[in-house]
């Protein structure tokens, strides 16, 4: 299944909901760029979901190569 796109309007909703919680004022000129980057990130997150993680696939608490 192709990764689902995040609509620009939904990215705007994320900005409006989360930015005030973080105390971030986003300048109007920056909003299109933030929307675009959120769309890219969410597209990649959908792709990453294809990894099919099991309950016991934990993060490495102390990362070592």
């Amino acid at each position: 299944m192709a990764p689902k796109e995040l609509a620009a309007a939904d990215a705007e909703k994320i900005i409006d909901a989360v930015a005030p919680v973080l105390g971030l004022d986003i300048a109007p000129d920056d909003r299109p760029g933030v929307v675009l980057n959120l769309q890219i990130a969410l597209r990649l997150a959908r792709l990453a979901e294809g990894m099919d993680l099991a309950d016991h696939d934990e993060a490495a608490p102390v990362f070592e190569a």
Partner: peptide
């Protein structure tokens, strides 16, 4: 840089 970092903070 700014717009990518802002988007990152909102994830």
């Amino acid at each position: 840089t700014r717009t990518r970092l802002i988007a990152g903070a909102l994830l």
